[in-house]
């Protein structure tokens, strides 16, 4: 039974892990970095940025980054699983520097982007379908110009970006807040008032209808119960037994007495009284005599 519970738990946790990783995207790549962003060592190298589109922190430790080169060779970089801080916050970015030497830190890959054809992100198994993959045409890359995801006509495409934005959104233009957009279409608030009132009425009307139906059903059930109890009572009376019907007050009094009695009951009373011996064992640590100053000898 325990094994089944462990299996279910593992499946659930694995599922949620995979679900979280599915929110990660390779968001921006800069292949030819001549005068742009520097890494922590002050060097300029190729880099790519990943973005967590989800609303939960995601652990990256153990995940695999696979770089496929033009000649078909695949270089795998596994993000150190031992790095507890290898994670990505919700709606946040993480930069990986492609220096070709992974000893510099967690976010420095063992491959460069000089002859890159594609970069892919895989889960800890490193197998199966990639979580995200981007193809890069090396001949199209311009010095200090990055490629990345950008919204064009409400569709996100991987294209050349107008600005290099490491650790930030690729949508560099002014993004109108939702309320401003809404206001442009509804400057007087009339549409909002109408829509909202309709929704509020719909919700409460549905609740009304459901509980109207439940009420009708309950009244019917209550009537049926009432009829049944009357029938039982009548049959008892016709038999002529001593079971006389109680008045409402009597029933209420009995019910009250029973409730009070039940409330007063404790869980279980053994009625056995146990007297434990309280021992005060002597210890020099607690002895008063050692805590007092001795009378000095003359």
């Amino acid at each position: 039974m325990k094994v089944i519970y462990i299996l279910i738990f593992s499946l659930i946790t694995l599922g949620s892990y995979a679900q979280g990783l599915k929110d990660v995207r390779i968001n921006e790549v800069l292949v030819k970095n001549l005068t742009n962003y520097e890494d922590d060592y002050g060097d300029r190298s190729s880099w790519f940025e990943i973005y967590n589109t989800g609303h939960a922190r995601i652990k990256l430790g153990g995940c695999n980054l696979k770089a496929t080169m033009i000649d078909g060779t695949v270089v795998n970089y596994q993000i150190p699983i031992s790095d507890k801080h290898a994670d990505i916050a919700p709606l946040s970015y993480r930069i990986f520097y492609c220096t070709g030497s992974d000893y510099k830190g967690t976010y420095y890959t063992n491959f460069t982007l000089d002859n890159i054809k594609s970069i892919a992100l895989y889960d800890a198994s490193g197998k199966g379908e990639a979580i995200d993959k981007v193809d890069i045409v090396i001949g199209d890359q311009v010095n200090d110009v990055s490629v990345g995801n950008k919204k064009v006509d409400n569709t996100v495409i991987f294209t050349t970006l107008t600005e290099v934005t490491p650790g930030a959104t690729n949508e560099t233009g002014y993004v109108k807040p939702k309320s401003v957009k809404f206001l442009e279409h509804d400057p007087t608030g009339g549409a909002m008032a109408f829509t909202a009132i309709v929704v509020v009425f719909t919700v409460l009307c549905l609740l009304f209808l459901i509980f109207k139906l439940i009420g009708v059903y309950m009244v019917r059930v209550a009537k049926r119960k009432d009829t049944n109890s009357k029938r039982v009572k009548d049959s008892a009376n016709t038999v002529g037994n001593s079971t006389s019907s109680y008045s409402g007050e009597e029933v209420a009094a009995i019910a009250m007495a029973l409730a009070l009695y039940k409330e007063d009951l404790h869980d279980k009373e053994s009625t056995i009284l146990t007297i434990n011996r309280v021992a005060r064992a002597y210890s020099p640590w607690s002895s008063k005599i050692y805590g007092l100053r001795q009378t000095p000898r003359k």
Partner: peptide, 20 residues
């Protein structure tokens, strides 16, 4: 008396009049 739910809905009009 579930029809009273509709009264609760109607009173919310104040929110949206104030919004406008």
């Amino acid at each position: 008396n579930p029809k009273l739910m509709l009264v609760g809905a109607a009173a919310q009009i104040g929110i949206f009049i104030a919004y406008s």
